[in-house]
């Protein structure tokens, strides 16, 4: 297990999102969380990412972890500079970094946009840049919130293929929030529905 939530609870303005949540997410598969709007899916993901604190309980995360939200923030600079940023933090070799970034751009179908200002992209293109930026440094855990929300069907297939490749590595863990039940069926090793009572594992084929 690379992510363990131990008795975590969270409330917003006296409304309980979830209470005493106990859950462990498996390595090497895609863990998909679904649920109604306002059920706390994004909050749970942010708690796991360390961006928000649970009111009670602990989260144990083993390994490097990255989070990409549904409305991703673009850094000042080009698409290439955005995707390169995590590699500059890791101080890896400049030449190999550029090759990795170029490969990621090709994989995501962002060819031709390398030198465009990231702020000027459409929301779908921004989603792809954010995904590339999250994947390029090969973290152990990938937390994605609605990664294909504004993306066309063809690109969704391409992204799902990339995500399935990612979880082929037994050391990788993918935790994904999605409203798209078809996507949950296509990707999911495990699908969970978040309710105030907790997370319940479901069979995506019967959703």
């Amino acid at each position: 297990m690379s992510i363990e939530c131990l008795q975590i609870s969270k409330a917003y303005k006296n409304k309980s999102l979830f209470k005493d949540l106990n859950i462990a997410f498996e390595k090497g598969i895609c863990n998909c969380i679904t649920g109604e709007n306002g059920s706390g899916k994004t909050t749970l993901l942010k708690i796991v990412a360390g961006l928000e604190k649970a009111d009670f309980g602990n989260v144990r995360v083993k390994g490097t972890c990255t989070y990409s939200g549904s409305n991703p923030y673009m850094l000042r600079g080009t698409v290439m500079e955005n995707i390169l940023y995590p590699l500059t933090l890791k101080r890896q070799g400049q030449q190999s970094d550029l090759k990795k970034v170029q490969a990621m751009i090709a994989q995501l179908g962002l060819d031709g946009l390398e030198h465009r200002e990231a702020h000027s992209l459409s929301s779908g293109e921004k989603q792809k840049v954010a995904l590339g930026r999250a994947l390029v440094w090969n973290p152990d855990i990938l937390l994605l919130d609605e990664p294909t929300a504004n993306i066309d069907v063809e690109t969704i297939e391409r992204i799902e293929h990339i995500l399935l490749e990612y979880v082929k590595d037994p050391e990788h863990t993918l935790l994904l929030v999605s409203h798209d039940l078809e996507q949950a069926r296509r990707l999911s090793g495990e699908t969970w529905v978040l309710k105030t009572q907790g997370l319940s594992k479901v069979n995506p084929k019967v959703l």
Partner: peptide, 12 residues
């Protein structure tokens, strides 16, 4: 806040 969160989640 968004830039800080991004940097933090990318391991900065």
């Amino acid at each position: 806040k968004h830039a800080y969160e991004l940097a933090k989640t990318l391991g900065a």
